[in-house]
Design a protein around this nucleic acid. Structure first.
Length: 196
DNA sequence: TAGAGGATTGAT
DNA sequence: TCAATCCTCTAC
């Protein structure tokens, strides 16, 4: 069942980031269906320095984060990698969840050809890799997740809270004390999580 | 308008 | 450990 927008438009981005674990992200790009179980997420909020929209910083790039929950926020990182985030909370409460890793489920041959690799291993185990495998790019920035091209489904899987690990987020040393917030979540023992 | 740096990755 | 690579943001 496709998640509706109300799921994303709640407060407490950390809770939503945890609830997304076990859900399935789908894309249909170029008429190719691909999908994977979300196994790793990170939460970002205007209340802390790790976030692009910290202190309600409003720029061309962060504009989409000020929209209602359920929009896709896709941006280019290091000039090379597209990063896929899901905007949460209400309008003008800029918060988002970075999808860091998936467990491939659907359209695996499509993903392998997009990645130009023969081995399934670590096809989607990182934020830059999974966008490439799923065909996600900046043209999807600002798209609602009720779109035909990208959405998230609940397949009934419930991840027990003791199966969810929380650590500090990766690659945001510039955020000072806020870099220590335990806002990175992943499914314990899953082999598809990004490298440490 | 120039310069610095980044929510990463894969090769060395 | 380091380069790739280009967009965004800030300061002048």
């Amino acid at each position: 069942m496709k998640l509706d927008l109300e799921f994303y438009q709640r407060e407490r981005v950390q809770s939503i980031a945890k609830e997304l674990l076990g859900k399935v992200l789908f894309t249909r790009i170029g008429n190719q269906l691909t999908g994977g179980i979300i196994v790793e997420t990170e939460a970002y909020s205007y209340r802390e320095r790790g976030c692009h929209a910290f202190d309600n910083l409003r720029t061309t790039r962060t504009e989409v984060m000020f929209k209602t929950g359920g929009h896709a926020y896709v941006y280019l990182c290091y000039g090379i990698h597209e990063m896929f985030n899901i905007v949460t909370n209400k309008q003008d409460k800029p918060e988002a969840i970075l999808i860091r890793a998936l467990q491939p489920m659907e359209g695996i041959s499509t993903m392998m050809s997009r990645m130009n690799v023969q081995r399934l291993f670590k096809l989607t185990s990182g934020p830059g890799k999974l966008t490439r495998a799923m065909g996600i790019n900046r043209s999807l920035n600002g798209t609602l997740l009720t779109d035909k091209r990208i959405w998230v489904e609940d397949n009934g899987t419930k991840i027990a809270s003791k199966q969810i690990m929380a650590t500090c987020r990766i690659g945001i040393d510039y955020a000072g004390e806020d870099a220590k917030l335990p806002w990175r979540f992943y499914i314990k023992g899953n082999e598809w999580i990004s490298r440490p």
